[in-house]
Design a protein around this nucleic acid. Structure first.
Length: 225
DNA sequence: GCCAACGTTGGC
DNA sequence: GCCAACGTTGGC
């Protein structure tokens, strides 16, 4: 599922939790980066894992109404547009890998707004990261769909960023079209051959290489495949 | 609405 | 620390 964003801007109060990264790392959390190979590497690079730097992102959310214990989790790009300053916090991410990617995001970077779990899944538009990772307050809110009883205020588990609407894609880029390119590129080579949307299908926040990002943007001016 | 893929949890 | 059971994601 996709994160449900608050229809209100994050409160100043939420900014309080600056130091995000408490000392502890749960087993699940630790295992997440686990693909990382230790083979032949010197010990330093193994432990310290400075994440590879990504500069472009794709973030999924659901544009159609769906009720999760009585609460509508709908939040499409049209909803982002209506927010004050067309800006919203991206709360509700409850997956370690997705969270870790959000923590790598830098102010000013661009992200695709992807519509998931809907009639026509695909990329709807572009947004910009306007605030880097900070504590997701909804984890402590019992009324929230994404309340997490296992997260304690003195060591919050979950983070969010703020995003601002930039623009719609000149045309909606459907998943089906991206998939055709992905398959084609996988067979013959091309920028989308390893796109996370297909290789890590369930990740709700994912990085794109500059090549992937630019290829997708270039599709705007092409006829639908 | 179905269900495949896969992340998370907990028993041992 | 393994792995079965369970829960979630998200396309179709």
């Amino acid at each position: 599922m996709a994160p449900k964003k608050r229809p209100r801007m994050s409160k100043k109060a939420a900014d309080a939790g600056k130091a995000d990264d408490g000392g502890k790392v749960s087993a699940a959390e630790a295992s997440v980066g686990g693909k990382r190979k230790a083979t032949g590497k010197s010990k330093e690079s193994v432990k310290a894992d400075d994440p590879p730097e990504h500069s472009h992102w794709l973030m999924k959310s659901e544009p159609e109404s769906r009720f999760e214990n009585g609460i509508d989790v709908k939040f499409g790009i049209e909803d982002l547009k209506t927010m004050l300053d067309q800006t919203s916090c991206w709360d509700g991410v409850r997956n370690f890998q997705a969270r870790n990617f959000m923590r790598q995001m830098k102010k000013g970077q661009l992200a695709f707004f992807y519509h998931s779990n809907c009639k026509e899944p695909g990329i709807a538009g572009l947004m910009k990261i306007v605030k880097e990772a900070y504590v997701d307050h909804t984890q402590f809110d019992k009324k929230d769909v994404h309340f997490d009883a296992s997260s304690k205020p003195d060591n919050p588990k979950w983070s969010m960023v703020d995003v601002q609407y930039q623009r719609m894609m000149k045309r909606f880029i459907p998943l089906s079209e991206l998939k055709k390119y992905h398959l084609q590129h996988r067979a013959q080579g091309g920028p989308l051959k390893d796109m996370a949307l297909f290789t890590r299908a369930r990740l709700s926040v994912q990085p794109l290489t500059t090549e992937e990002f630019e290829f997708v943007v270039s599709l705007e001016d092409k006829a639908p495949l």
